[in-house]
């Protein structure tokens, strides 16, 4: 199973066909364990009480919002540098899933913040950065939807994704700076290393479970996208073929004009 095998969309379809049942199984099992540990086994936090249970889903969502963007950035690099046929499929499939997890991170953060801070929203550095990330996701999805040709859209989105990825640390840094300027003390701190294992282990299991869920959904969405492109090429061939037949039957001397730029430009990617 070398990476080169994955380059071919047909091979990718065959491989994921075999892989997906296992992935679904692993997702279900790990999520059942993670949620059981989070809801029934893990103790209450001495500061936050039972609301710490929200953290067991909030933190995995935050992790996935970054993970999905990283997947998109790597895929965009593949699109721009190697023109890999699968990479823009991967980038396109990851965008709505990543946006959904980012949105969930915001919602659960807000629901966690209301009992902790007393308001639905604070302009806390971390929440604000996630909000900016969410807007970036929506911009990327908007760009995918406005450019009709998938190959061309893939290239434009790849540039945007990579520029955004370079900017994420800068945005994070400036939001932190801005936040410390205006809000001297943060209200709740969840410091990683000082977390007791009784909280850390359910959190890690949940993070793994949601990552597996993301991978499952991402693979299925990639498969749909490959099929969608296949359908698109078939339809174009059909239309071009129909046009060709019409031309041939109506005018015999049309051979010179038969090579219109439209028919020449039919997408090359047509694995069958």
């Amino acid at each position: 199973m070398a990476i080169i095998d994955l380059a071919n969309p047909t091979r990718f379809m065959r491989l994921t066909d075999r892989l997906l049942p296992w992935l679904v199984g692993a997702t279900v099992v790990s999520m059942a364990i993670g949620l059981y540990l989070a809801l029934y086994v893990s103790p209450e936090d001495y500061q936050q009480g039972a609301t710490v249970k929200i953290m067991y889903i909030h933190v995995p969502f935050a992790w996935l919002s970054m993970f999905a963007y990283t997947v998109m950035a790597i895929a965009s690099f593949g699109t721009l540098v190697w023109k890999h046929p699968l990479s823009d499929v991967s980038a396109k499939a990851a965008a709505p899933i990543g946006a959904a997890f980012t949105f969930l991170c915001l919602v659960t953060g807000s629901l966690w913040g209301k009992p902790m801070w007393g308001t639905w929203w604070v302009w806390d550095a971390r929440l604000t950065s996630v909000l900016v990330l969410f807007i970036m996701y929506l911009g990327i999805i908007a760009l995918w939807r406005t450019i009709e040709d998938p190959i061309r859209a893939g290239k434009a989105v790849a540039v945007l994704t990579l520029v955004g990825y370079i900017n994420i640390p800068i945005i994070k840094f400036s939001v932190n700076w801005w936040n410390t300027l205006h809000q001297p003390a943060s209200v709740v701190r969840m410091d990683g290393p000082s977390m007791p294992p009784s909280i850390l282990i359910p959190l890690l299991v949940n993070a793994l479970a949601f990552t597996l869920l993301f991978m499952t959904l991402h693979f299925i969405a990639m498969r749909s996208e490959i099929l969608r492109r296949r359908i698109r090429t078939l339809r174009q061939h059909e239309a071009a073929g129909a046009a060709g037949v019409a031309r041939a039957t109506t005018s015999v001397q049309a051979t010179a004009s038969a090579h219109s730029p439209k028919t020449n430009k039919a997408p090359v990617e047509a694995p069958s």
Binding site: G49, A50, T51, K53, L104, V107, T108
Partner: peptide
């Protein structure tokens, strides 16, 4: 679910 069952249930339900 402690003192704030509504918020915990709501966040899990939304997810």
């Amino acid at each position: 679910l402690g003192n704030h069952p509504g918020f915990i249930l709501a966040s899990y339900a939304v997810s």
